[in-house]
Design a protein around this nucleic acid. Structure first.
Lengths: 327, 327
DNA sequence: GCGCACGGTGCCCAAATGAGCAGAAAGAGG
DNA sequence: CCTCTTTCTGCTCATTTGGGCACCGTGCGC
């Protein structure tokens, strides 16, 4: 009889008959949903296990059987995976953003905060020392942080209390520590100081040294990336017009933890590094997990530059930036 | 590190974090769509293959991964499978019907014909001898038959040329043979005769004996089931009121190949069997594949009775009847 | 009319997989 | 603070699975 089976499968586009369709459907359910083995299925239908395998195979290939992966709609599995693979990251989460909405930047940041908070709740363990940079993204993250293992939280840089909302700048670190019931090490100092001497002095100041001396113990750091433009970088906003232009002319493309980077991820202005209170790249490089928060198409190029530093093994970003990074 | 993984999976409802979600999604795609092995996936993600297996398992169980089977909408995979399993059939095809539509009986019969034609195109091979009963369902089947292996076609019973449409009663057999380019053996005789003697004589009539003598060679038979009511059975329609009532009072519930059956599938009126020209149950029992066509809720109980004969190893029916059979 | 290529089938063997098991860590409760 | 329970993890072994191979029948072209 098997020799005659061919008669019905000979046609090239393979007009599957109703029998084969329902049989394939039944076999698919047996195999994928009920977990039966192909040998069992073969016995049930009186065919060889090879035929079962081939039927499922072709059914999957021809789209008769389709399996879709249901994620919360805000997560973009495909780009997350692509990003992770492309940049060799350990954590890569892309959330969906409406690129068209220009006024929605704050909204995007808000969603970034929610997603990042979820990530922290997930990956931070009791043994971790969590380091948080300061910035608008962290401020968006903070209120979304509802669960966190009991860990130590260290602030990784000073603040720039320029805007009213920044009054509670260190609130993020305090809240994270509160949620985790762990110890907090905030930094009550500006991010950028007039000169290196002042910065060096402050770094040794009691209370600040408390935090700074723990930079080396951080096991998971959350870092944001700024672009060189108004409202896109805490450093940019803290500088005067002359310096802004100066650094722009030097090719500044991104700002990471107070460090200015060109498009290749190289530090542009070492002298500025002296004037900041923030975790250094050397220290960051020793942190096992460094996660980059990057939202908004305006920071796309900056994000690409930041990734080129090789400091990061994790990223949380939106569809728009992900598209740019994958292009 | 693995010792700490638990922290994130400890919560019972398992609030999956974004990291785990996208990672599971990526793994599912690797495994199900790209065909990677779990060992490969485990290596890629730096976890054990067991964890990969468990993650996919739970994802499948929790509905994160969903597999849907895309069938032509007229086919009901679930009920087909249920019917096949429940009644131990080899072929079971349920097509969707709108039970609510009373005037749609003809439409349902039409769809039954199309599906059954598809089934025949699929399972009939060159070595088969196809036997067709006569009835409205077969008439609906006939025009839908557009492909068929080169097989011999035998008509399995006489006809009841009561209605105008029946004028071309044997057309079904002729058309099937034409499509298959095989030999046809029609029966130009009535299904029901006044007495057994006439029937016996006709069975030996040249031209009729041609077909009748081939009943034993049939390898695939297509049989319909009638209910005991007007327009639901060729035999019922051919009898007078007195006989109709007589057989009804004897518990007649179904009619199969001219034989009257009670609700348990037992032959009610052996004397009537003498008066018909149709394949007998004994002959049918020797046919490897006997497929029952049953459409319309009015024939549901009759179909159940027919299946109790144990003659059938295949069925084509609509949702309504299938529901009844599975209830 | 005949050979040839082809698609389908089943089998062999190596790789992949699943079930059950033991150890260990986290959380609850005393 | 300690212990018990629960749950997760990774391992071993038996089973399952898929790729490559040979066979067979068919349809096609010469």
């Amino acid at each position: 009889m098997s020799t005659r089976e061919k008669a019905r499968t000979g046609a090239r586009p393979h007009h599957a008959g109703p029998e084969e369709l329902v049989q394939t459907a039944a076999m698919a359910r047996r195999f994928y949903l009920e977990g039966k083995s192909k040998i069992e299925i073969a016995a049930e239908f009186g065919i060889s296990r090879f035929k079962v395998a081939r039927m499922l195979e072709t059914a999957l290939r021809d789209g008769l059987i389709r399996l879709d992966i249901r994620l919360p709609p805000e997560l973009d599995a495909e780009r997350s995976d692509a990003l992770r693979t492309r940049y060799g990251l350990r954590h890569a989460i892309v959330f969906t953003s409406q690129v068209q909405d220009p006024g929605g930047a704050a909204l995007v940041t808000h969603r970034l905060g929610a997603v990042a908070a979820g990530l922290l709740a997930e990956i931070v363990t009791e043994d971790d020392v969590l380091g948080l940079i300061w910035g608008p993204e962290i401020e968006a993250l903070s209120p979304e942080l509802t669960a966190l293992a009991r860990c130590t939280v260290v602030q990784l840089c000073g603040v720039t209390p320029l805007r009213p909302v920044d009054a509670n700048a260190v609130e993020a670190v305090r809240r994270a520590a509160a949620v985790s019931r762990g110890v907090a090490y905030p930094i009550y100092a500006p991010l950028l100081l007039p000169d290196g001497a002042t910065a060096r002095m402050l770094r040794r100041h009691p209370g600040i040294v408390e935090a700074v001396s723990r930079f080396s113990e951080v096991t998971k750091a959350v870092i944001t990336v700024g672009a060189w433009g108004p409202g896109l970088s805490t450093i940019y906003d803290a500088l005067g017009d002359a310096e802004r232009e100066n650094y722009r002319s030097l090719g500044t493309c991104a700002e990471v933890s107070g460090h200015l980077l060109d498009a290749e991820g190289r530090i542009v202005a070492p002298e500025l590094t002296e004037r900041i209170i923030a975790i250094s790249f050397e220290e960051l490089r020793r942190v096992p997990d460094v996660i980059l928060l990057a939202d908004g198409a305006q920071r796309a190029a900056a994000t690409a530059a930041a990734l080129k530093t090789g400091l990061f093994n994790g990223i949380v970003t939106d569809t728009g930036v992900a598209e740019y990074l994958l292009a």
